[in-house]
Simulated assay, not measured.
Amino acid sequence: MDKTRIKGVADQGERATHREAVVRYLLNRRCAIQPRVLMNRIYYQERQRIFEFLEGVIKVIAILGGSLAFSNIAAPWLV
C-alpha cells in the first residue's frame, strides 16, 4: 500500500515538472513571437497610412479631371 502511495506522489511530481516545462515553453514562444507581431502591426499601420494618402491624391485628381472635362464640354455652349 505504501508503494502505490509513493508511486502516486512520484507521478504527481512528474506531472508538475512536465506542467512547468510546458508553461516555460509556452512563455518562451510567446516572448519570441511578440516582437514579430509588433513589427507586423507597425508595418500594416504604415501601409494603411500610405494607401489612405494615395487614395486622397487620387480623389483630388479625379475631382480636377472631372471639373476640367465638364468645363471643356460646357464651354462652347456658354460662349
Results as ranks from 00 to 15, higher is better:
V60F: 10
L26T: 06
I63W: 01
K59I: 02
Q34N: 03
A74F: 14
Y43I: 02
K59G: 01
R36M: 07
T4K: 12
T4H: 13
Q34M: 09
M1G: 15
G65Y: 07
I33A: 10
T17E: 13
I33K: 03
G66S: 07
L27S: 03
R30K: 15
M1F: 11
I6T: 15
T17N: 04
G56Y: 04
A74M: 12
Q48L: 12
L26Y: 05
I42A: 12
M1A: 14
A32Q: 13
L27F: 12
V9L: 14
P76T: 03
G13H: 02
G56C: 02
L38P: 00
K3I: 13
V79G: 07
L64M: 03
A75M: 11
A21M: 11
C31N: 10
G66K: 02
A32C: 05
C31D: 11
R5M: 04
G65M: 09
Q34S: 03
I73H: 01
S67K: 01
R29H: 01
I42G: 02
G66W: 00
R19T: 14
I73W: 11
Q12N: 14
M39K: 12
V37R: 09
V79Y: 10
V79F: 05
R30W: 07
E20N: 10
Y43T: 13
R29S: 03
C31V: 09
S71P: 00
Q45D: 05
W77Q: 08
T4N: 15
R41N: 06
G66V: 00
F70C: 14
S67L: 10
L64G: 00
I58G: 00
A21H: 07
L27A: 06
D11C: 11
N72S: 11
L26P: 00
V22D: 15
P76G: 09
G8H: 03
I50W: 08
A69I: 02
V23W: 03
A74G: 08
R24C: 00
V79E: 12
Y44P: 00
Q12P: 00
Q12S: 14
E46Y: 02
I6P: 11
V79R: 11
F51N: 06
I58S: 08
F51V: 10
I63L: 07
A69C: 06
D11H: 11
H18A: 10
G8I: 03
R29V: 10
A74Q: 05
G13L: 04
V37N: 01
S67I: 04
E55M: 01
G8E: 08
R15F: 14
I42V: 11
